[in-house]
Design a protein around this nucleic acid. Structure first.
Lengths: 140, 140
DNA sequence: TAATACTTGACTATTTTAGTCGGGTATATA
DNA sequence: TATATACCCGACTAAAATAGTCAAGTATTA
């Protein structure tokens, strides 16, 4: 059970941005340097974040990306969805009336995986970007 | 974020076994047929479960595998550990005093991933094999 | 007009996953 | 005691997913 780098980097990059005054464009180059994430990879990730209305872009020199909303209003679950990281622990379809793996009955552990999905999603639903910063501040 | 088949099959197979009287060897062939899991793959999985003292084997004709403990006392977290499925959502080492990715500081989201790991592990710590069967019975 | 920075699709190497294969050994029962 | 059943185990492999890179742009500002 592992998180992929895309989601991890997305959260890291957005957390990085949150530390700067809103409306102040932050360039991917800077994020790349500060967080040690490949610039080219970041570009890929931010396109998705943009499409999903989490950030907006400011083109041209001294441009960059800007959070589209207050960090308080950006849930981690949104970020994950944006970068295609579904939290879907197994193949058999969630809530499917039909069975799993083409059979006519639900697999014996079906309810368990459904429950797990909900449980994990819940974690991300209840955390927003500003929560991350607060934790950080308390510690240092 | 996805569960691998090894852990899923392990739980499915053990849940299947739990339905039979304890001390009655259940053959992998039967589990394979009932749960539609490749026999050869099951063998791989059960070797691990055996090494980790979750089942014991009865060799020879009319042999099979037997749960080593009451289903009530087999936590899902044990099963996951047995089949090498660490719940470790990211690369940076849990609780590491040093930084992440070879840097001297913790990555900005480090605490978050630690928290997530604990959260998920908690789910598996608090569920045992017999819980699965009970859910099943309530529903049918 | 040069430099900065976003835009986009296609491509690729690496790693992980999900198995299979082959050749065993042990034991019950006919 | 033969034989079928069932566990044992390491090595191998195809396919999919991941984690990026590359090339060739466009927009904007200093």
């Amino acid at each position: 059970m592992k998180l992929n780098t895309k989601s991890r980097y997305a959260v890291m990059a957005l957390a990085d941005m949150s530390k700067f005054p809103i409306n102040n464009p932050v360039s991917l180059r800077d994020i790349s340097l500060r967080q040690s994430i490949s610039l080219l990879y970041l570009e890929q990730i931010f396109l998705k974040l943009k499409k999903n209305e989490i950030v907006k872009s400011v083109r041209g020199s001294s441009g960059g990306y800007v959070l589209k909303r207050d960090p308080k209003n950006i849930k981690l679950s949104e970020i994950f969805q944006a970068v295609d990281q579904k939290v879907k622990t197994v193949g058999c379809k969630k809530d499917s009336k039909k069975g799993c793996n083409g059979k006519s009955v639900k697999c014996i552990t079906h309810e368990l995986w459904d429950e797990l999905d909900i449980y994990i999603n819940n974690f991300f639903e209840n955390k927003n970007l500003s929560d991350l910063l607060m934790t950080k501040e308390r510690k240092n």
